[in-house]
């Protein structure tokens, strides 16, 4: 699994830029939320973004998603400037209980992404069944979101994002509200999904260890206003393992560095 180790973008085998953030600044009224943020994301990469509250993590993700237009600078998806959401870019929000439609079943919520793509109705059931199987929700196809645990609800949202067949998956602290056990399981599942598809992932979190565990590269944001503090490459072998990866001395070294950067230590 996680075959991407074979052509890890760190070695430049696939080096097409999918997202290009150019001197992005965001100001809401008189409040400067983000200043001069620039970075680019290579196709197939897994980037994590960490930062304290007030560092504009969510604002940055909304700009990448086309939900917020930067006040200055620009965000590009391939050769297009992002001014509105792009078909190839899917978003998983933190608050799964608000992002799922309570009047639609699990299948119905996933079908939404197919309807958006105008997939013929006749094709939908087979595709939904396949996605349900991939995220382990087959037994919950006809349940309403409210009947599911937080972890299962977040799986539904991930499934809906996958049904969009995105090139880029943007995730805004997706596991922040889940308990530790569920969070670890979903971390491994998202790595598995990423490893078995050509998807690029941009993953926002406030959990430093999660950032190291998942990413190929960590972008550290500083607060007031949000700006890039560091851009760290994670040279940890894949597949990652909840025990051994977290005990790896390179993991611990990055953890030390992040703690220093974010003022915890």
């Amino acid at each position: 699994m996680q075959q991407k180790t074979l052509f890890d973008t760190a070695h430049g085998v696939l080096s097409h830029t999918v997202l290009d953030v150019r001197s992005v600044g965001v100001t809401f009224g008189s409040r400067e939320v983000m200043r001069d943020v620039s970075f680019s994301v290579t196709q197939g990469d897994f980037i994590t973004i960490v930062g304290p509250s007030g560092s504009g993590k969510t604002t940055l993700l909304r700009a990448l998603a086309g939900l917020t237009t930067p006040t200055t600078g620009s965000v590009r998806f391939k050769d297009r400037e992002i001014r509105e959401p792009q078909r190839e870019v899917a978003v998983v929000f933190q608050d799964y209980n608000r992002a799922l439609l309570p009047w639609r079943t699990v299948s119905g919520n996933i079908a939404l992404a197919l309807e958006a793509r105008r997939i013929p109705r006749a094709e939908a059931p087979a595709r939904i069944a396949e996605i349900l199987r991939r995220v382990g929700l087959t037994n919950h196809a006809d349940d309403f979101p409210k009947a599911l645990s937080g972890g299962l609800q977040q799986r539904v949202q991930i499934a809906r994002a996958l049904a969009q067949e995105p090139e880029v998956l943007l995730m805004d602290e997706p596991f922040g509200a889940l308990d530790a056990m569920t969070r670890q399981r979903l971390q491994d599942e998202i790595l598995e999904i990423w490893g078995s598809t050509p998807t690029t992932v941009v993953f926002i979190t406030h959990d430093l260890e999660e950032a190291i565990y998942l990413g190929n590269r960590i972008i550290v944001l500083e607060a007031d206003p949000g700006r890039i503090g560091a851009d760290i490459r994670v040279e940890l072998p894949r597949p990652r393992n909840q025990l051994t990866t977290r005990e790896d001395e390179r993991f611990l070294a990055i953890r030390h560095r992040l703690f220093g950067l974010l003022g915890h230590g």
Partner: peptide, 29 residues
Amino acid sequence: IDPRVLDVARVLRFSPGARIVRFVLPAAS
């Protein structure tokens, strides 16, 4: 209607008419 639901509608790029039929009406139903 939860603003997050409207975010979802925008991310999935539904037209304004489809947003009313698929999101606004059911949410208000």
